[in-house]
Design a protein around this nucleic acid. Structure first.
Lengths: 202, 202
DNA sequence: GCACTTGTTGTACGAGCGTCCAATAAGGTT
DNA sequence: AACCTTATTGGACGCTCGTACAACAAGTGC
């Protein structure tokens, strides 16, 4: 009888990624309070000590998870815009409504996102990641708005309003999924978008 | 030489309140991770054991803090509407913009609020409080919208959109206070509100 | 088949956590 | 002045936390 291996080695990058994904799942399920080294390690199917081998500490793992999740969102939004053709209005609408379709509208991702928000005030490194993410999101939105003919003077405020709307709908989608469905959120975002940019374009 | 008292007794209600307020301050400053019994007790200037005397546990204290904070917000919004006169449009605008003036626009209150949001998924009791708070907010908003002549068919979606906008602006106000000031948020909310209800009223 | 690298485990440590509870003392009553 | 109620303290309990580290073993090259 041949004894099977007690564990399998992984490519360092693959193991890093699996830890990050496990961290995201734990954050989504239990919130920041449950995101301990041991819980995350169990979720990833490894021992607790391994976390220290790949990350400087649990704080660094959480920050890496934030960065990874943010990149996922960015990529999905970019793909949605790229697939929307050349009409500026179509591209803008695709950008906004992509937030309420797969893979972004995933409840797990939204819950993870809220966990990150709750860390911003107490953790300067998380705050820096947030600011970066936020600037990128708003810059892209301002660009799309400019191509739609929105006057420069209104770009900033309109972008802030739309971002706030999207974030607020994300919140509701995550906190009260029984009250608001993703497709209704998308519909609300679409009509609100029209209402917000309509007055300025005529 | 007369020895001064080692501690002072308080009216039970006053002590309860001081614990709740201390909890809110800790939540705002350190987030949910720092809201331990000992930290809160130090913040309130009492011993750790006293928390157990007034609340079933730290979870109950946090829930009570949520309820208290929610009631504070409700009262401020109600007062704003009451002081806005009789014109339906004025009352609606007062309701929305009150969210960005004292005492609601307080960074500490906003940070506390985000800490609560991060608890909703993992804590059924907090989720229940959230739903209650949310229903109340939206019901009042729908009432104000109806008085402005908005068709019944659009009440729900418009109320959701405005609520999302307000929550999203709160978020930004709290997470990036250096990027967005309360008065600019109020201006954005005001003009967005106009844009959102304008198309439906003509 | 041996040696080497290093991914992985398990344990140990100190600190902080929530909770419980006996002892203390403050403030009012008689 | 003696007394009673109970708000308040401070310490003890068992637990989980993050981190560090020595021992182990999987996979690779020779």
């Amino acid at each position: 009888m041949t004894t099977q291996p007690a564990f399998r080695r992984s490519e360092p990058d693959a193991r890093r990624l699996s830890l990050i994904e496990a961290c995201a799942r734990v954050l989504a399920r239990e919130g920041i309070a449950g995101a301990s080294v041991r819980t995350i390690a169990v979720e990833a199917g490894v021992s607790a000590g391994l976390v220290g081998h790949y990350f400087a500490g649990v704080d660094a793992l959480i920050a890496a998870t934030y960065a990874h999740t943010g990149a996922r969102v960015d990529a999905a939004l970019e793909a949605a815009v790229a697939g929307a053709g050349n009409d500026p209005a179509d591209r803008l609408e695709a950008f906004v409504t992509a937030s309420f379709a797969a893979p972004i509208a995933d409840p797990e991702l939204l819950a993870t996102w809220i966990a990150f928000w709750s860390l911003v005030r107490a953790r300067p490194d998380i705050a820096a990641l947030h600011d970066e993410q936020y600037r990128g999101f708003r810059a892209q939105l301002e660009g799309l708005l400019a191509h739609c003919g929105l006057p420069d003077a209104q770009l900033r405020r309109t972008a802030i309003a739309i971002t706030a709307l999207v974030d607020g709908l994300w919140l509701e989608l995550c906190l009260s999924p029984h009250e608001l469905a993703a497709d209704e959120a998308a519909a609300i975002a679409r009509s609100a978008l029209t209402a917000l940019i309509l007055p300025a374009r005529r």
